[in-house]
Amino acid sequence: MKILVCISNVPDTTSKINFTGDNKEFDKNGVQYVINPWDEYALTRAIELKEAKGGSVTVLNVGEADTEPNIRKALAIGADDAIRVNAHPKDAFFVAQQITAIAKEGGYDMILMGKESIDYNGFQVHNMVGEMMGIPSVTPAFKLDMVDDSTARLEREIEGGKEVVEVKLPFVASAQQPMCEPRIPNMRGIMTARTKPLKVVAPVGGEAMSEYVSYSKPEKKSGVKLIDADNAGELIKLLRNEAKVL
């Protein structure tokens, strides 16, 4: 089974978010980049399936050279090889076109990724790739197992419940917890990752459909109003009469 796992390179979850250049650009200063946490579920589950059924796991990133440390980390966790499409990921539509081009050429059985990136929170790419390739996209999935060699069974979250879906290969799925326990690289993984193939390819033509013009930050809270614990019931009155939310 050939599995393609798409990862994005995002600011660590603890990052302070700031902007520069008249709020037109994200301030990378002092920001640590990590593999998008949602993508780690997709990556680990792909490796588990490979270990159980055989096959290969290829990692794909659309990004510039500074994403390579995290691509190497994905190889250290257990992917076999990697492809980097050398381009700034302009928007979801652009990224989906790049993934589609690679996926078509590679003939993968399964294309997995996280349900969204924690920086742009799009929740778009997986469904776009499914649509561009004309294959099913099951998102957001929290369970993924093989029924037989050509059929997978997934459980997907819907508002207020879940759906059980069975699809034939090939398909696209996006991952979220509790699909698996994301792995961290061990020393042997880190050593072998250095020599695993990482291919850099040029982007296919394709335009973005949106343009980020500026950024802003939420207004700061004016400060907390403390209520004495002995008089806790007072809070309920304030919520009704002052905040007017009850």
Binding site: F93, A96, V125, N127, E131
Partner: peptide, 24 residues
């Protein structure tokens, strides 16, 4: 609506109609 259903259908329509999509 930016629900699992709304965003999924919106993403597919963006491809089909060659449209610009903004979620959230």
């Amino acid at each position: 609506s930016n629900s699992n259903i709304g965003a999924a259908v919106g993403s597919k329509l963006a491809v089909r109609l060659n449209g610009s999509l903004a979620t959230n």
